[in-house]
Nucleic acid binder design. Structure first.
Lengths: 223, 223
DNA sequence: ACAAATACGATAGTATTACTATTATATTTG
DNA sequence: CAAATATAATAGTAATACTATCGTATTTGT
């Protein structure tokens, strides 16, 4: 899988960036270290100035790639979901409807354990960022405008893929879209609870969000 | 009826505020209009200076009630969940386990349609704020510290109540806590999708998040 | 190889934010 | 009526989230 990925470029909606960070080594360093810095100090405290200092570059140079830190978060989010989508397509290929959905849940709910190192992006850390910060990419007053601009297409496509698998397995189920979006958003939430509010989840070292959602979905669709 | 009486006067953890906003008319005006202003411009653009101007008071006076806008959000969130808990206890009283859980789901998932006007707080608008901003109250780097300080006790108590109802109905179900927290967080998310990402949810004018979660839970626990 | 285009770094500047501190005045209470 | 308390007004600070300009380095096309 790693070798396949090395020939593929994760495609992110163009309007998100001013200049494609994949097109230069500075751009790659910006993305690479923004992930590490956001993970370390949190998105709220993260600034382009701090990032500039960290990578020995200038604040103004970073603005030539991303017009704001919010756009950078949208970029990271899109990249993450594109990467998940890639795994989703490959790993669910050629399975029967039931196994396909079960495998899909596994792909979207599992926590990333290994940095595939086919790129400058550390997927383990990026996964942590998504758990802590992903909601902030759409919980804004500009969400409708940004949605129109296409900034959330990849995220939505994942939900559609899951929804279609639900429909394929159980055509008369009434809430395939809501079930799909609940799994995606809910599993990030369960991972968060696991780290910060252990009393509100059953997930721990032994039980994973994947198991919870696999069980939930199979019971919901069996009857 | 355990904590019903103690919640009649909506009780918020004391450490959240510097001075109890319920103790003065200025305090009440701060809370009342912060809700309206956050709803209008969003929490990210909300500042104490703007609120001061709006209520014809001074920024510095607001700081005597809340030490930061984040603490104010924690206050609003606690107030909201305390108010939900109040309804939860009353409306689920004396029902059998199945009806009790179904009613509980209704209470936590329904959108507020009427301002009960028993206070200066507009519950309809507060409900909208929770849909858009509630996650921001815990998705921070300070979450563990603030959790220790007890800022999330009411929110957690709601999850525990739901969890206990799940256990009462189906003692051998493996994931009662995760199911409970999924309902609470997930229903706010479904409401958000309904307003901004209609293609990712089945909820609309006819179908409510309540229906989706009632169906989900009864199917999950029946088998 | 050379000019032109582009990228980057350095510096400066702006309006706003998220506060803290001080003092003066108004209001409540004992 | 005095003392205590609450509020308002003003000022100030460091940081944020940018924009603008300019000079130099690097890349590129011919």
């Amino acid at each position: 899988m790693d070798s396949l990925l090395s020939n593929l470029k994760i495609a992110v909606p163009e309007k998100i960036y001013v200049k494609d960070p994949e097109s230069s080594s500075l751009g790659k360093r910006i993305v690479e270290h923004s992930i590490l810095l956001i993970d370390e100090i949190g998105f709220d405290s993260f600034t382009f100035k701090k990032l500039g200092t960290l990578i020995g570059s200038n604040e103004s140079s970073i603005y030539r790639y991303f017009e704001s830190k919010h756009k950078l978060l949208l970029y990271l989010s899109s990249w993450y979901w594109a990467w998940i989508e890639y795994q989703l397509v490959i790993e669910t290929h050629n399975l029967n409807p039931f196994d396909k959905l079960q495998k899909a849940i596994e792909v979207v709910c599992r926590s990333t354990k290994e940095d595939s190192s086919f790129s400058h992006i550390n997927e383990v850390v990026l996964n942590r960022i998504m758990i802590n910060e992903n909601s902030k990419s759409f919980l804004t007053k500009e969400v409708d405008l940004e949605n129109k601009e296409g900034y959330f297409v990849i995220y939505k496509r994942i939900v559609y893929r899951l929804r279609d698998m639900v429909i394929a397995l159980k055509p008369n189920y009434k809430y395939p879209s809501s079930l799909a979006s609940t799994i995606i958003d809910g599993s990030l939430h369960q991972h968060f609870l696991k780290s910060h509010f252990t009393s509100m989840t059953d997930c721990d070292l032994d039980i994973t969000p994947t198991q919870f959602y696999k069980d939930l979905v199979s019971k919901t669709l069996q009857s």
